[in-house]
């Protein structure tokens, strides 16, 4: 799409659009309740499922939206193969930080906007420091741990040898089914 390519290549348009998408994202996060410390911690303690409901609703919409747009050539796949050393170890380190802070990198910014000072002086400052630590150790990790145990496939349908639209249908039914079960369990 020539129009889309023009937008992608216009630096000023990208800055303005990024800010606008961020603002709307911040409104949705705050209204969805996930800029609240206790909502996230109670999700991790499995007593409140707001985070799960919000995330699954987003993926239910975006999975269909993305693949329809991709089918017509408007968007491209942005997925890398990944590995146990990168994704499992990195994911678990992230998880420990997630519980200690009570926010993730997006919701921490939303919490700052709602007035949480521990999210600003603890959380956001910490993420900047942690990112710097990664940048320092990256040259050694890159050829070592990050390459350990590469995953067998880029996408789930490739891994399971299923046609794309069947895979999407299975995932959508599973996610909607999970939300229905949560609802009937009284969460």
């Amino acid at each position: 799409m020539p129009l889309l390519t023009t937008i992608h290549e216009n630096r000023r348009a990208q800055i303005v659009l990024g800010l606008l998408v961020g603002i709307v994202f911040g409104i949705f996060l705050q209204k969805g309740g996930v800029t609240n410390y206790s909502v996230i911690v109670n999700q991790l303690l499995l007593t409140d499922f707001t985070v799960m409901k919000l995330m699954l609703s987003a993926v239910i919409v975006a999975m269909i939206g993305f693949h329809v747009l991709k089918h017509y050539g408007y968007v491209h796949l942005h997925a890398a193969k990944g590995s146990i050393g990168a994704n499992v170890i990195g994911g678990l380190i992230f998880g420990i930080g997630f519980a200690l802070l009570g926010f993730c990198p997006g919701t921490v910014a939303g919490a700052v906007g709602s007035g949480a000072m521990d999210a600003l002086f603890g959380g956001m400052a910490g993420i900047v420091i942690g990112t710097g630590i990664f940048a320092e150790i990256y040259p050694r990790l890159k050829t070592g741990l990050l390459k350990q145990g590469p995953f067998p496939a880029v996408t789930v349908q490739e891994f399971l040898h299923l046609p794309l639209w069947i895979m999407i249908a299975i995932m959508e039914v599973a996610m909607i089914g999970f939300l229905v079960v949560l609802y009937y369990l009284g969460f």
Binding site: F66, A80, G90, F98, L101, P105, G130, T131, L141
Partner: peptide
């Protein structure tokens, strides 16, 4: 917690939105 989040997010190549939402939606 923030330090571990920043370290872990870059180690894994993304966070709750990059992997959890955008990546999962791409399957």
């Amino acid at each position: 917690g923030g330090i571990l989040l920043g370290l872990g997010a870059r180690w894994a190549g993304g966070c709750t939105s990059g992997h959890g939402l955008s990546g999962s939606s791409q399957l």
